[in-house]
Design a protein around this nucleic acid. Structure first.
Length: 374
RNA sequence: GGGUGCUUAGCUCAAUGGCAGAGCAAUCGGCCGUUAACCGAUAGGUUGGAGGUUCGAGCCCUCUAGCACCCG
C-alpha cells in the first residue's frame, strides 16, 4: 500500500537506532514513538485533545474488546474508529492475540482459531485469523495486527515451536484474507525465548513481505535481559526498511534498549494504568503519589515536564485527588505519564539525529536513578 | 423520675462463656500488545469504667458513666 511507509531519515552511527517518519493514511508521525493504548476505543480518562497535545502520534484500540462491545458493526456504522472515538490521527488495532494469553482461563486454541468465553454474556466467541482481520477491517484502523498467540513465559520448547509455527500459518491466512488497501497489516514474530524460533519466525514473516513487523510475546513476566534478547533474536532478520513494533512494553529500560536495537514503535498500558493507580513516572524516578511525604508538597510532579498536569498542579493536590478517588486526578496523572514517555521519545529522536543516542540513554538512566523503571 | 437498647481498631460493625475479626480510613508496595480507576502487604485493641460469678468473661451478675429512643 502506497499511503503507508517508513521514511528512515537518520541512523545513529554508534548504535543503529533509527529516526524516521512513519507515513499513514491519517497523517505522519516521527519514530521512534510511544503509542498510548485505548483498548475500548478510548484512552482511559483522557479526551483525544489532551492525548494529541501530549504529542501522541498513533494510538491503539483493541479488536477483541471492540468486537465484544459495542461490536464492529456499530463502529463501522459510526464511520469507523476515527469518527467513532474522535481521533483523527493514525490508529492501530491489536488483533485479540494478546487476549489468547491474558484470557487464557476462558479460551481454547485449535488450528482453526480460538474460542473465547465472552465475559459479558457467557457467549462462546470464535476468533480466527480471517475473522480477526474482518473485524479489523470494519473497525478501520490504519495499522492492523495479524491474529497470533501471545505465548506465555516460561514455556517448553515443544509448545513454543508448535505455537510459533501456527502463528505463522495464521499470519499467512490473515494476509490472504486482508482486502482493504488503506490498512497496513503487520506480521507478529513469536518464538518465546528460543533464539532459533525467533529467527525462524522473523525470516518466515520477512518472506511474506508485510508492510511492518511486530515483536510479540514480550513483557509477560520474563526477566528484562530475556525480553531484550527476544528483541535481538528477532530484529536482525526483519527487513531494515520496514517499521518494527515492539508490542506491549512501556517501562523506560525497554523503550531505550529497544530503540538502541532498532525498534521504531512501542505501545503499553503501563503509563495510563500506573497513573490510575497513583504511580507516576518522573525524570528522577517513579513515585507513589499516595505517600504521606507529599501531603504538603506544593511542587509539580516533575520540574522538567511541560504537561498540563505539571504546568498547573502540585503533588499535594494530586495526592488529595487520589485519596479522594476523584476522577480528575486520574486524568491529570494519565496525561503526565503519557507525556513523560513521549518526552523520552522526543529526546531519543533528537539524540539519534545527533549520533549521540547511547549518551542520551545513559543520561536518562542516571537521572531516573532508582531501579523502578527496570 | 421510670423503662428499653447501645458502648469492641481512627470510623461503621462482627464475634454458642473457649486464640477478639472484617470493611473503610491510615502506612507502604506492585502493575508492561488492559477481564485491572485494580491487587497485595503492614500497622492498628486494658472490648466505656469499677467490682463479682467461672477453670475461663467482649458475652452472665451488680454498680457506674455516656449516648439513643419510649413512657411520665
Amino acid at each position: 500500500m502506497k499511503d503507508f511507509y517508513l521514511e528512515i531519515k537518520h541512523i545513529d552511527k554508534e548504535t543503529g537506532a533509527r529516526y524516521g517518519i512513519l507515513h499513514t493514511p491519517h497523517g505522519d508521525c516521527e519514530v521512534p514513538m510511544f503509542m498510548p493504548v485505548g483498548t475500548n476505543a478510548t484512552i482511559k480518562c483522557l479526551p483525544p485533545e489532551m492525548v494529541k497535545e501530549a504529542g501522541a502520534g498513533v494510538i491503539l484500540a483493541n479488536t477483541y474488546h471492540c468486537h465484544e462491545r459495542p461490536g464492529e458493526e456499530i463502529v463501522k456504522k459510526a464511520g469507523g474508529l476515527h469518527e467513532f472515538m474522535n481521533w483523527h490521527g493514525p490508529i492501530l488495532t491489536d488483533s485479540g492475540g494478546f487476549q489468547v494469553f491474558s484470557l487464557s482461563a476462558n479460551r481454547k486454541i485449535s488450528e482453526e482459531g480460538v474460542t473465547f468465553k465472552n465475559e459479558l454474556n457467557g457467549n462462546m466467541e470464535f476468533f480466527s485469523p480471517e475473522s480477526a482481520i474482518a473485524i479489523e477491517e470494519a473497525l478501520g484502523a490504519d495499522i492492523i495486527m495479524s491474529f497470533d498467540e501471545c505465548i506465555p513465559y516460561p514455556v517448553s520448547y515443544e509448545y513454543a515451536k508448535k505455537s510459533t509455527e501456527r502463528t505463522l500459518r495464521w499470519a499467512k491466512r490473515g494476509q490472504d484474507a486482508h482486502k482493504r488497501e488503506d490498512q497496513a497489516l503487520f506480521g507478529i514474530v513469536q518464538g518465546s525465548s528460543y533464539t532459533d524460533l525467533r529467527e525462524y519466525a522473523a525470516k518466515e514473516l520477512a518472506k511474506m513481505d508485510f508492510p511492518g513487523y511486530s515483536i510479540g510475546g514480550t513483557s509477560i513476566g520474563e526477566p528484562p535481559d530475556v525480553c531484550i534478547k527476544m528483541v535481538e533474536d528477532a530484529i536482525r532478520y526483519l527487513p531494515a526498511e520496514k517499521p518494527r513494533y515492539l508490542m506491549g512494553v512501556g517501562s523506560l529500560n525497554y523503550l531505550l534498549e529497544g530503540i538502541e536495537r532498532g525498534v521504531d514503535m512501542f505501545d503499553c498500558v503501563l503509563p495510563t494504568r500506573l497513573a490510575r493507580h497513583g504511580a507516576l513516572m518522573t525524570t528522577h524516578g517513579r513515585i507513589n503519589i499516595q505517600g504521606a511525604k507529599y501531603k504538603e508538597d506544593f511542587t509539580p510532579l516533575d520540574e522538567e515536564c511541560d504537561c498540563y498536569c505539571c504546568k498547573h498542579y502540585t503533588k499535594a493536590y494530586l495526592r488529595h485527588l487520589y485519596l479522594a478517588h476523584e476522577d480528575f486526578g486520574k486524568t491529570l496523572m494519565s496525561i503526565h505519564n503519557i507525556r513523560f514517555l513521549i518526552r523520552v521519545m522526543e529526546g531519543a529522536r533528537k539524540a539519534i539525529q545527533e549520533d549521540r543516542f547511547k549518551e542520551y540513554k545513559e543520561e536518562v538512566y542516571a537521572k531516573f536513578g532508582n531501579k523502578k523503571g527496570f
